[in-house]
């Protein structure tokens, strides 16, 4: 890999880091996490494709690493989906809301 390319990738990474720090100063609400994750993903892609030479590597290796991300997504996806579903039942939430049916009769003797 020619030196200019190494340096170009490095400076692109630095600029993106600056960008992500800069954007974090604005309150963008929910969009913020997605924006910073997108920037991180672009950076990660640069590292993988150029520094790790995946662009020139055998396709099998690319399949291997990208395949693993699918399994990570499965793992996170199902677990989060479930956590979202039972959130209402968590005791500290339901105590706060007090609208939770049934929770009322369960006060502890005090």
């Amino acid at each position: 890999m020619p030196i200019w390319m190494l340096l170009a990738v490095f400076f692109a990474l630095l600029i993106l880091t600056g960008l992500t720090v800069y954007q974090s100063q604005f309150d963008l609400g929910n969009a913020e996490i997605w924006l910073s994750l997108t920037i991180a993903t672009v950076k990660a892609a640069l590292v993988i494709l150029f520094f790790m030479h995946l662009l020139w590597d055998k396709p099998l290796n690319a399949i291997v690493i990208l395949g693993s991300l699918i399994f990570v997504a499965l793992f996170l996806g199902f677990t989060l989906m479930d956590a979202e579903g039972y959130r209402e039942n968590l005791i500290y939430k339901s105590t706060v809301k007090a609208s939770q049916p049934g929770a009322k009769g369960d006060e502890i003797d005090n």
Binding site: N89, Y92, A103, D106
Partner: peptide, 11 residues
């Protein structure tokens, strides 16, 4: 049957 889990209500 239903598990009784600490930290939450199960119904």
């Amino acid at each position: 049957k239903r598990d009784v889990v600490p930290g939450r209500y199960n119904y």
